[in-house]
Simulated assay, not measured.
Amino acid sequence: MRKPSHRSTAVVAALSAAVLGVAGCDATGGNAPGPGGTGAMSAKPSPSPTPVWNSSPGSLAAVGDSITRGFDACSVLEDCPEVSWATGSSKEVDSLAVRLLGEARAGQRSWNYAVTGARMADLPGQMAQAVTRKPELVAVMAGANDACRASTSTMTPVADFRAQFEDAMSTLREALPKAQVYVASVPNLKRLWSEGRTNPLGKQVWKLGICPSMLGDPDALDAAATLRRDTVQKRVEDYNKALEEVCAKDKRCRFDGGAVYEFRFGTDHLSRWDWFHPSVDGQARLAEIAYRTVTAKTG
């Protein structure tokens, strides 16, 4: 894909399974009386462990592609970062940064390093920029451009996609071992095609080169066109599986569980210029999904 309140109450993060599994011990030692004796009364409670996940981080950096830049949400073929789901300032969107930090702090403590047209191979470089800000949370949405290629044969192989995401995570971890990561799933590109193909203007804009592997010859329903779109769709599903599996290996990473992929984008959620990228309303829905995932009691 091509190339921003209210302050929400933070939810206490869930304790890790390892912490929950720790059994309590009698603080008075092996010679202490049983539970009914005076020793039980003097036992000191175990200190509360520090949660692995903080649902109210104090700063946020975003990396990714045109969706996170608000491309085509405000004007044709242009970025509009003020309506970005991740860091935007628009009251209509109520971005993740605004929801977590509040309107005033969001402008000072959130940064957008996404680039329109970026692929997963670009993520390590964006992450290297992001870590210079020492963010407490990094929001990731990338992968659509790896499937949106000139043809299905030029889509990024899944193994390469996985390795590139692992590289980006390593870049983050080497610099900021305790930073948290929110990872959004790649959107359902086939659904976006299905919704957008009803608009003549949108189809004209698609001819400019927007996601040709999925959007090329949009009205064709023959076997070849169907196979092409299904191939793209399968690749997106494989990308999401890779994102989920890599994220699961990091205790400070949360994948959205496929929520962005499964969201049923309608025409109101799509750009009125290209009928493919999220509109302002679509950006607001992405912000809701991200906030829900970041503040959930469990990962």
Rank of each mutant, 00 (worst) to 15 (best):
R2S: 09
K3Q: 10
V12Q: 09
A13Q: 02
A14I: 01
A14C: 05
L20F: 04
T28N: 15
N31G: 14
G34H: 07
G34R: 06
T38K: 04
T38E: 09
T38R: 08
G39Q: 00
S42T: 14
P45L: 15
S48T: 12
P49W: 02
S55R: 15
S55G: 15
G58A: 13
S59E: 07
A62L: 13
D65Q: 12
I67K: 02
G70V: 11
G70I: 07
C74R: 03
C80M: 01
E82F: 06
V83M: 05
S84F: 03
A86Y: 04
T87M: 05
L100W: 05
R105L: 09
A106W: 04
G107E: 07
R109P: 00
Y113A: 07
A121P: 00
Q126S: 11
A130D: 01
K134Y: 00
K134D: 13
M141S: 14
M141V: 08
G143V: 13
T154K: 14
T154P: 08
T156Y: 02
P157E: 03
R162L: 07
F165M: 04
E166C: 04
D167N: 07
E174M: 12
A175T: 13
A175C: 11
L176E: 13
L176C: 13
L176Q: 11
A179F: 04
V181T: 09
Y182F: 15
S185W: 07
N188D: 15
N188F: 11
L189A: 06
K190F: 11
K190R: 15
R197A: 12
L201N: 07
K203N: 05
Q204P: 00
V205Q: 09
W206T: 07
G209Q: 08
C211Y: 02
P212G: 03
S213M: 05
D217L: 12
A224K: 06
L227G: 03
R228M: 12
Q233W: 05
R235C: 08
R235P: 02
V236W: 03
N240T: 09
N240I: 10
A242S: 10
R252N: 12
F255K: 01
G257D: 05
V260L: 14
H269W: 02
L270D: 05
L270E: 06
D274T: 04
D274P: 07
P278T: 06
V280L: 09
D281W: 00
Q283C: 03
R285C: 00
A287P: 01
A290K: 00
R292A: 13
T293H: 02
V294P: 06
T295P: 03
T295D: 02
K297T: 08
G299M: 05
G299D: 04
